[in-house]
């Protein structure tokens, strides 16, 4: 039982980090209807940029600020150069464009910063500590807390602030957004900038866990089932979906893995999400939608 709880808690904590990556998708999807496959590439780019700048001897916080600046610029540039030109294309074309974008950014990141694996030290030692007899990784807890705070902050921002509501509104009602007095173009730029910021945080957390390297882009593939579960438009969906995927994946690996050969964490979340969708196609929080004709 105690082991079960340990596995479960570990999974849930990892799940919060999935939520964080998923959140990057949700932000952009809500505001512009784009399923941004390049989010993973942004995560890699952010982490690589940060590590490389820090390696040059720049202090942590300044490196962080510079990277943030670069990510914001990058987000704005993507919006300007790519997405704005695709405004009237079907969503699937936009999606494919972001696949192209992810190749471009990955190539760019490695051209500029090289391909070697960098370690990333956030100063938190990964030692287990004891909560009522259950051992929890300190790093996991830290990462989960930070992600949790960020996710909650963004959720509040969307719910409570005028700008947040405007951002939420743009995807389905451009007029409503305009009435807040913010030009659409600015809104999209802001969203891309925020997504860049989320990518930076995710990149640093995952980077210090896995090492900053190309494989970081694969984290995004873990976040996709979270999105199917939670829905592309729901912040709470991203959170709950992340938790389910995190816990489900770890539990399956431990309890199911031995019977079918292990290494199942690559596909298990997908199957979980698929089975779920077959039962409830509208996702966790989506409303059943009947197409209007």
């Amino acid at each position: 039982m105690q082991f079960f709880i340990e596995v479960m808690v570990g999974g849930l904590l990892a799940g919060v980090m999935y939520s964080l990556v998923a959140l990057g998708f949700v932000l952009i999807y809500k505001a512009s209807g784009v399923f941004n496959f390049a989010q993973g590439a942004l995560v890699l780019f952010a982490a690589l940029t940060f590590v490389s700048i820090e390696k040059m001897g720049v202090p942590f916080w300044i490196a962080l600020a510079i990277t943030l600046g670069i990510m914001v610029l990058m987000g704005v540039a993507i919006e300007r150069i790519v997405l704005r030109r695709l405004v009237n294309q079907p969503p699937i074309s936009l999606f494919m464009a972001t696949i192209g974008l992810s190749f471009f950014i990955e190539g760019l990141a490695q051209t500029v910063w090289g391909t070697e694996v960098h370690g990333l030290e956030l100063g938190i030692t990964d030692e287990p500590f004891d909560v009522m007899g259950v051992f929890i990784s300190k790093f996991d807890l830290f990462a989960a807390t930070l992600s949790g705070v960020l996710v909650a902050g963004l959720a509040l921002f969307f719910q409570k602030t005028k700008l947040g509501r405007a951002l939420r509104a743009v995807a389905d009602d451009h007029q409503a957004a305009l009435s807040v007095g913010i030009p659409l173009k600015h809104i999209w730029a802001i969203v891309w900038a925020v997504a860049g910021f989320v990518a930076l945080v995710a990149g640093m957390l995952w980077g210090s866990r896995l090492g900053v390297q190309f494989a970081l882009t694969l984290v995004v593939l873990k976040a996709l089932p979270v999105l199917i579960l939670g829905g592309f438009t729901s912040v709470p969906g991203a959170i709950v979906g992340g938790l389910i995927v995190g816990a489900g994946e770890k539990l399956a690996e431990v309890y199911l893995g031995p019977f079918i050969g292990g290494g199942i964490e690559n596909w298990f979340p997908y199957m979980l999400a698929l089975v779920f969708l077959l039962v409830r196609p509208e996702g966790l929080f989506g409303e059943r939608h009947i197409e209007r004709v």
Partner: peptide
Amino acid sequence: TQFLSNMEMMLFGGLIIFFLI
């Protein structure tokens, strides 16, 4: 070759975007 393969990625990505636009 590393540089070339990175260039290839960028070129592919760029071309996809170019064609879609």
